[in-house]
C-alpha cells in the first residue's frame, strides 16, 4: 500500500514536470519580441530625430533581442484642428515645427550592418516610409532628412571603418513626420503605412486622419 502510494505520487510529479516543461517551451516560442506603445504622445516625437521616444517600438530584450527587421508605430487616429496651417507655426531648421498638424511615425530598425552597401550612410536615414491612401490608392514615400554633416570634431577618436558585418545587428531609431517629409495632405482619409530598407520590410499599420469640426 505504502509502495503503491509512492509510485502514484512519483507518476503525478512526473506528469506535472512534463506538462510544466512543455508549457514553458510553448511560452518561449510565443513570447513577444517587441511591444508597440500606444498610450504615448506622438506630438512629442521630433521629426528627423534618430533617438528613442516613448512612442518608439520597444524590444522586449533590449540588448540580446532575437528580432531582426523593421518595426513602425503610428497612432491609430489623428485629429487635426480646422482652420489652421503649418505655415502659422514656427519651423525649425531640422524639419520640425511646433504645429499640431503632424502625422508622426516612430520606428526601429534592428538590422545587420551589412544592410547598407554604402558604409558612410546612416541606417536610420535610409529607411523608406510609404503611406497609401486607402480610397484613392495614391502613395506617398519619403525618408528622414539628414541635416548637414558636422564633420570631424577635434579630439574625437575617428570611427574604425571595418567591412560591415552581416553578423552584427544594431538598433537604429527613426522618427518621421509624414506631412512634412512625405507630403501627406491635411485632409480626412485612411492610410496604410509601412517601411522598407533593403531586404527588410516592416509591420503594417493603418491610420485614420480626421479634421476636428
Amino acid at each position: 500500500m505504502y509502495l503503491k502510494s509512492i509510485t502514484l505520487i512519483c507518476k503525478v510529479v512526473l506528469i506535472l514536470t512534463i506538462f510544466h516543461v512543455s508549457a514553458g517551451e510553448e511560452m518561449s516560442e510565443n513570447k513577444k519580441l517587441y511591444e508597440m506603445p500606444q498610450s504615448c504622445d506622438f506630438l512629442a516625437v521630433g521629426n528627423n530625430d534618430s533617438i528613442e521616444y516613448d512612442c518608439s517600438p520597444k524590444l522586449t530584450d533590449r540588448f540580446f533581442s532575437e528580432f531582426k527587421g523593421i518595426l513602425i508605430n503610428t497612432p491609430k487616429e489623428i485629429i487635426w484642428p480646422d482652420n489652421t496651417s503649418v505655415d502659422d507655426y514656427q519651423k525649425y531648421p531640422n524639419g520640425n515645427n511646433n504645429s499640431p498638424l503632424k502625422f508622426m511615425l516612430s520606428g526601429l530598425a534592428n538590422v545587420p550592418d551589412s544592410v547598407l552597401k554604402n558604409k558612410s550612410d546612416e541606417v536610420a536615414y535610409q529607411v523608406v516610409v510609404i503611406a497609401v491612401n486607402q480610397k484613392t490608392a495614391k502613395s506617398y514615400s519619403g525618408k528622414m532628412i539628414q541635416m548637414g554633416d558636422v564633420g570631424e570634431i577635434p579630439g574625437m577618436i575617428p570611427e574604425v571603418n571595418d567591412e560591415p558585418s552581416p553578423e552584427i545587428t544594431r538598433k537604429h531609431y527613426f522618427n518621421i513626420d509624414l506631412v512634412e517629409n512625405l507630403g501627406v495632405p491635411i485632409a480626412e482619409a485612411n492610410y496604410t503605412v509601412y517601411a522598407t530598407l533593403g531586404e527588410f520590410k516592416s509591420n503594417v499599420t493603418t491610420v485614420s486622419t480626421k479634421i476636428k469640426k
Binding site: N118, V128, I130, K135, S139, S141, T206
Partner: peptide, 29 residues
C-alpha cells in the same frame, strides 16, 4: 477589405509597386 476602399476590378488599381536601390526609392500605383 477594410484597407481597400473599393471592390471588384477596382482593386487592381490599389496595387502599389515599391522599388529601392541604394539611395533611390520610388513608390507608384
Amino acid at each position: 477589405e477594410e484597407s481597400i476602399e473599393t471592390k471588384d476590378s477596382g482593386i487592381l488599381k490599389h496595387i502599389i509597386l515599391n522599388v529601392t536601390r541604394s539611395g533611390n526609392y520610388q513608390s507608384v500605383s
